[in-house]
Design a protein around this nucleic acid. Structure first.
Length: 625
RNA sequence: GCCGGGAUGGCGGAAUUGGUAGACGCGCCGGACUCAAAAUCCGGUGCUGGAGACAGUGUGAGGGUUCGAGUCCCUCUCCCGGCACCA
């Protein structure tokens, strides 16, 4: 017996034996119970070292179940489209395709040398037409159903490179290559109506018993179902009656509204800026910077009075309209009511610009507003004391103690309405009910359930992605590419310049004819978000070689995934999109209801709870690719 | 900023519902074996003081609840993941 373990002598022989015997082939029919063990597929440019840990977990589980008598499927594939390939192309002057295929070869060799029990006959490569053609097929179906639609949306625009930047490519508000100050620019994009499935995606979380609570909580918060009131501030402008709509979950504070804030792109802002150079300049300033929410949330809150006034729907008072750089046109109505006394952000804004602060909720005598003569201090119009404990100087002698106020100001449980006329004394629920009813009588509002979740913008102004199968015809509009013309193949021999998509410079790609009228037409040159590919690879693994659709009947056998191994960094986006795609594919009749939320299988151990689609996430929390 | 996690010896990590903190492993120290080393085996190992018995102290910081807190509550610090165009 050898004293030392010499992997080159032993592992090569064993791996060759496994290969010849097809030791890890997963049978599509079997008397044995099936066990689908899915490790998230790698992005091939990444170095292999980070994957070892992750794939070892899946391999251990797979081998354990094989020994326990399961028909195990452990597949592997490549998440092969993506931005880094274009960056590498720029740096090394290699086409993204060649670079990607070369990386895949290296990585396959590395993974195989680990001796993982993978059924390599199921290998999936997302940048190959046999994979992405079915993605295009689904796109055309969803487009016809109205589940994909076009609207404008803001992107990061590099004014020097004349190109759209990913959030990652914006560093401190500047383009990573040009160093130019990035601007927001509105361009047309295709969106998937994930919001149409919001309720179902939320409700299903309760069925995913094997999922970590942490992940389910993050998804619940992301979907963000809220119960509020949508209402309007009427106004008259240019001789016309109109309404400014807002949404709030704190309708009980509506009597404390002292201003409204609209996004820089809001029609009212645009109108107010006419003939007002200062406002125009401010709106322009709001366009600086990127579109990432983290940046917007942390930047300094700025605003400017438009000079316009709208009418409070209940009091009839005139309320000033401000432009706020923190109000986003794409979210909700692009306008918010501001109640400085009971919202921290509004409070900061009001303090900065000297706007009135009107208390309308109190928790009692010790509410921090106190005026020394019974609670309910009226208008704490100043609240400018810097240390938060002094007395304001706003005319009314109203002490305002931020420290005590901060303990409760945002609570829906503590406190009742004051300074609110007929609503005085009401708690949160009864105040909202009463106010919503009064708004409804006036035709100015109603209760509304709203989701934080937004529709999924899938257009990318990139080359290395799946082409969006749409043809633009001057006569017929946006026409989906007919099935018989799929796939729309991405040309692989291109030169990347870093300024705009190469596809938009290739007449041989974009010049085409309209499938409907036969006239000259232009092919869409945007590609899809790479999350689209990773949203259904788990299903494609079940049906290798299928040329008739995304999947075939084998999907029904193998799904749901019994065990998923992936990093926590995918807890929201990827895993939400994957759940969404499961529903889209279900609704196309590709498989049944249970492929994500099956409850038919027996529970095994506490650890391996069997019912959900991907039933446990041993989170390897390192971001390794 | 918002959402979700985390912080325990030199290191990786244990500690069921609130009940002997540091299991197990690595490393380190001592010993055995050996001419010597490696490997192996035995013993020790949170920190401080002490020759030792032992004493004090100790789970990011500060408060609190409790007979009792790594565990529950409040405040804070730092770190990690996500924030919709990195994947």
């Amino acid at each position: 017996m050898q004293q030392d373990y010499k992997p080159k002598n032993i592992e090569v022989v064993v791996q060759q034996y496994w290969k010849e015997k097809l030791a890890f082939r997963a049978e599509d029919q079997s008397e044995k119970p099936k066990y689908y063990c899915l490790s998230m597929f790698p992005y091939p440019p990444a170095s292999c070292t980070g994957h070892v840990r992750n794939y070892t977990i899946g391999d251990v589980l797979s081998r354990y179940h094989r020994m326990k008598g399961f028909n195990v499927m452990q597949p592997m594939g490549w998440d092969a489209f993506g931005l880094p390939a274009e960056n590498a192309a720029l740096a090394n002057n290699v086409p993204p395709a060649a670079w990607t295929y070369s990386n895949i070869d290296v990585m396959r060799t590395q993974l195989q040398s680990l001796g993982l029990g993978v059924d390599w006959s199921r290998e999936v490569t997302t940048c190959k037409p046999d994979y992405y053609r079915w993605e295009q097929w689904l796109f055309t179906r969803l487009f016809q159903k109205g589940l994909i639609y076009k609207k404008t949306s803001s992107v990061n625009w590099d004014p020097v490179d004349h190109t759209v930047l990913a959030n990652e490519q914006v560093i401190d508000g500047r383009g990573w290559r040009s160093g130019a100050l990035v601007e927001k620019r509105d361009i047309p994009m295709y969106f998937m109506r994930i919001t149409q499935y919001a309720e179902e995606l939320l409700a299903d979380l309760d069925q995913l018993e094997g999922w970590p609570e942490q992940v389910k909580t993050m998804q619940r918060n992301w979907i963000g179902k809220s119960y509020g009131v949508r209402f309007a501030f009427p106004y008259q402008l240019d001789g016309k009656q109109d309404k400014l709509w807002v949404y709030t979950t704190r309708a009980d504070t509506i009597m404390g509204v002292t201003f409204v804030a609209v996004a820089a792109e809001h029609p009212l802002a645009t109108r107010a800026a006419q003939g007002n150079p200062a406002l125009t300049a401010f709106i322009d300033e709001c366009k600086h910077g990127g579109v990432a929410e983290a940046d917007i949330a942390t930047m300094e809150k700025k605003g400017m009075d438009t000079g316009l006034k709208v009418t409070h729907p209940l009091t009839g008072e005139q309320v000033p309209v401000w432009i706020g750089n923190y109000v986003l046109m794409g979210y909700g109505e692009g306008a918010v009511m501001a109640v400085p006394a009971h919202d921290e952000r509004d409070f900061g804004f009001a303090k900065k610009y000297g706007l009135p602060i009107k208390q309308v909720i109190t928790k009692g005598r010790d509410d921090g507003f106190g005026d020394g003569s019974g609670y309910g201090g009226g208008t704490a119009s100043g609240a400018r004391s810097e240390d938060g404990s002094g007395t304001d100087s706003g005319g009314i002698d109203t002490p305002f103690t931020i420290v005590r106020w901060q303990e409760w100001y945002g609570s829906k449980v503590v406190g009742v309405c004051i300074n609110s006329g007929k609503y005085d004394g009401l708690g949160y629920t009864s105040a909202v009910d009463s106010i919503a009813a009064d708004l409804a009588v006036k035709g100015l509002g109603e209760k509304k359930v709203q989701f934080r979740l937004r529709d999924w913008g899938i257009s990318r102004q990139r080359y290395w992605g799946c082409p969006i199968p749409i043809i633009h015809c001057a006569h017929c509009g946006d026409v989906p590419v007919p099935d018989e013309q799929l796939p729309v193949v991405l040309p692989e021999n291109v030169t990347i310049t870093g300024a705009g998509s190469p596809l938009a410079k290739m007449p041989e790609f974009y010049e085409t004819t309209c499938p409907q009228c036969g006239g000259a037409a232009k092919r869409e040159t945007d590609t899809m978000d790479t999350f689209v590919e990773s949203s259904w690879y788990y299903a494609r693994y079940t049906s290798p070689g299928c040329t008739t659709g995304m999947v075939d009947e084998r999907a029904q056998y193998w799904l749901p995934v019994d065990q998923y191994v992936g990093g926590i960094e995918h807890a929201i986006l990827h895993l939400l999109y994957a759940r969404f795609f499961n529903k889209l594919m279900r609704d196309e009749g590709l498989f049944g209801e249970t492929t994500f939320t099956s409850v038919s299988q027996k529970k095994k151990s506490k650890r391996g709870g069997q019912n959900p689609l991907m039933n446990r996430l041993p989170t390897c929390s390192r971001k390794v690719w």
